[in-house]
Each structure stands twice: as C-alpha cells, then as structure tokens.
Amino acid sequence: MQNFAEELRAALLLILSGDPDMWSIVLLSLRVSLTATVVAAAIGLPLGAILAVTRFPGKQLVVVVVNALMGLPPVVVGLTVYLLLSNSGPLGVLSLLYTPTAMIVAQVLLVLPIITALTRQIISELDGEYADQLRSLGLSRMQTVPTLLWDGRFQLMTALLAGFGRAVAEVGAVLIVGGNINHVTRVMTTTIALETSKGNLALALALGVILIMIALMVNAAVAATALRAQRLSHA
C-alpha cells in the first residue's frame, strides 16, 4: 500500500503520455456504451411513452416488471446473451460471441429497462399536466406521444445519461459475452479487473481515473441540462 502514491503517479503519467493501447481501450468502451445507449433510447423512449399514455389490462404488472428490470444483475444478462449467441445457442449462426456487437447487445438489454422505466415516469407526470389540453386541441392518445417526448426532452436527457452511466461502468455482462480479448473486446472495466489481478496497478488506476472522469462529466451534463431547462422555464 505504501506504493499507492507511486502507482498513482505512474497512472497519471500513462494518461498524459497518450498511450495508444490504453486510449484504444477507452475508445472501444465509449463506442460500445454509446451505441448501446442510442439503440436502447430508440426503443425505450417510445416504449416508455406509450406505456405512460395507454391503458390496458395488466398495465400495472408491466410497469412493476419494467421497474424491477432496472436492477437486472449484469452477470445474469451476460449469461443469457452468452447462451443465445454461443455456437450451440439459437443465434449461434451469427457468430457474434466475443465481438463488440455482442457487448452492445448485452448493454442494450441492461440499459433498455432503465430508459423505458424512467421515460414512463417522466412522461406520465407530464401527461397529467398536458392530457386535457392536448385532448382539447384534438390529439388522440397516441398522437400525444411525440408531443410529450419533445416537451419532456430535458428530463429525458437525464434518463439517457443515467442509462449511459450504467452501461459504461458495467463489467459482468461485457466480460462474459466479450471475453476480454486484447485489442478486440477489452474495455475499461474488464481491463481494470484483469490488470488488477495481474498486479499492473498503474494501467488499472489510469483507466479508473478516466472512468471516474467520465462519470463526473455525465453528472455535470445532467446538472447543466437541468439548469438550462430551468432557465427556459421548461422544468
């Protein structure tokens, strides 16, 4: 432990030196998690909004299930995607196991419930305020969905950032379906786990620092979004 200061110094030097191997890991992490967030948003935003404005038997059950899925254990998602994509699995012919695409699929499954559930909450609340007015203006329930999504844009941005934060910090699912292969599927979190066990603390710490900075930036973006919404009286 007396080496901690030394390791941290080495880690910061590694960050500042622009080590290409390290940065390729960071870029792959960002690419996988951003893609997963975009895909999950494309499905989760409309899905959450429709769940908010429609009424059907068993809706409460669906809402409870979606909310519960927010806390899905990443390793279980990883295992499920592994079983689906492995050579003997139903999607084995696609040969996607141990590719970045497999990691994206796993992260989409993790992030989708978060974005869907938060969108449902946000849009439900907005709908309570807008429903009579939009009906008065002649919109059907389904027609209100794009309007509500647009008018909830600032709050929904925080839902997307929450989803991205979850994706980029997650280790269990990408480790199982990606395999942590050097230069192919090695991302920040899996590298930290591996390098720590190997005793290469400098690289692990360097990636840890970058991961924390990304988390800070995501939170700053959330705060800035809230501030801008308030300034426009759109909160």
Binding site: Y130, Q133, S136, T147, D151
Partner: peptide, 21 residues
C-alpha cells in the same frame, strides 16, 4: 376550444405554441 383556469403552455417558444396548434 377550451381555455383552462391555469394555462397549459407547451415547453416551446410563444410562436412554437401557436405553430403546434
């Protein structure tokens, strides 16, 4: 058309609210 006691304005500009309708 109906006007409610508390106006429910969309989170858009003044023109945007009219353009929407």
């Amino acid at each position: 058309a109906m006007l409610f006691q508390k106006p429910v304005l969309l989170r858009r500009s003044v023109s945007g609210n009219l353009g929407f309708v």
